[in-house]
């Protein structure tokens, strides 16, 4: 079953888009051999990276002045072979969302955003996605091919792309007047945000730290692990750490992928500050502390020795992982 993938090569996130799609392909019924990837790119510099990490052997490289949805849609819509694809896949990012829906409309197909999984039906495709504010999972039938589908953020585990031999590359250059409504265009690439609120990994210390020294020690450890560092209100109110590091309703509201909470009991005001975390691990000596029933994993013990052992494990693993990743 032929399918296409559309990626935005103008973005620095290209490689993660590709790995996300590749991870999705691995768990779906689609086979790589039947796919073709369309990548929009701005300049020659990106070419090598784009080719190296394209998730299929067959690759269409479309050179454009910049990422501009009107122009991209115009190109893809009018690409001759488009009718042959039954599925068109897009990553979970902003570009993927807007392109999937609009292309679906133009090709008279069906589209769906933030899709978790797909399943073949006799006369269509079954897509699942989260609805009702992530409270329920909905299963939808899409009737009209091409099925333009953008993925759910963090849905499937991304998968590194192996070296693919026998690449077939088709080059296009697209100048269009589709974006003539734009008078000026100024793009500012964002710096990596160091703030606690945007950190992917956060370590938080609670009143169980017991002293300013312990708080400073933990802060140091967090920075070594490349994690954001926060404290609960009692820690800040006791003057062990400055107020800017406070997490909870009167401080920062964090939403990391991984939140490690040490020595905090889990007052409602604090829990509200971390509840959007994807995964919460709590370490506390008190098995009855409220946080122990509001986290994903609870380790019942003194946080100090647990944290020491954990840091060692992470450090060893990290160096292994880096070596492996660069050698791939």
């Amino acid at each position: 079953m032929k399918f296409a993938i559309v990626l935005n090569g103008c973005s620095q996130t290209y490689r993660s888009q590709a790995e996300e799609i590749y991870g999705f392909l691995k768990t779906s019924f689609l086979t790589e051999g039947e796919g073709e990837t369309f990548v929009v790119c701005e300049n020659e510099k990106q070419r090598d990276e784009i080719i190296r990490y394209a998730p299929t052997a067959l690759l269409h490289l479309i050179k454009m002045d910049r990422y501009q949805p009107e122009a991209i849609l115009h190109f893809i819509e009018h690409y001759e072979g488009m009718k042959e694809f039954r599925y068109i896949l897009f990553p979970s990012d902003f570009a993927g969302q807007e392109l999937s829906v609009r292309l679906g409309s133009r090709l008279k197909g069906s589209s769906m955003v933030a899709v978790e999984e797909i399943d073949v039906l006799e006369d269509g495709v079954l897509c699942s996605k989260l609805v009702y504010g992530n409270h329920l999972r909905g299963y939808f039938k899409l009737d009209f091919p091409p099925f333009c589908i953008s993925l759910q953020k963090g849905g499937k585990e991304p998968c590194p792309i192996p070296v693919i031999k026998n690449r077939q590359i088709f080059n296009y250059e697209q100048r269009s007047d589709q974006d003539s409504f734009i008078q000026t265009y100024l793009f500012k690439r964002s710096e990596k945000d160091e703030g606690l609120e945007s950190a992917a990994f956060v370590i938080i210390g609670g009143y169980g730290l017991g002293s300013r020294e312990a708080a400073l020690n933990l802060q140091k450890k967090a920075s070594e692990l490349d994690a954001g560092f926060g404290v609960t209100r009692p820690v800040a109110m006791n003057g062990w750490m400055n107020m800017g590091k406070m997490v909870g309703v009167s401080g920062e509201l964090v939403k990391p992928k991984l939140c490690l909470v040490l020595g905090a009991s889990g007052s409602a005001a604090f829990m509200a500050g971390i509840k959007k975390s994807e995964f919460i691990v709590a370490v506390n000596q008190d098995a009855k502390a409220p946080i122990m029933n509001q986290c994903d994993v609870a380790v019942i013990d003194d946080y100090v020795p647990v944290m020491d052992a954990l840091t060692a494990l992470i450090n060893t693993w990290q160096s292994d992982f880096e070596t492996k990743r660069t050698s791939e």
């Binding site: 935005n8 973005s11 620095q12 996130t13 990422y67 990012d93 902003f94 570009a95 409504f181 734009i182 008078q183 000026t184 265009y185 100024l186 793009f187 500012k188 690439r189 964002s190």
Partner: peptide
């Protein structure tokens, strides 16, 4: 945008 902020003047 996915990797930054875009400012455009448009008609």
């Amino acid at each position: 945008m996915d990797d930054g902020v875009l400012e455009q003047v448009i008609k």
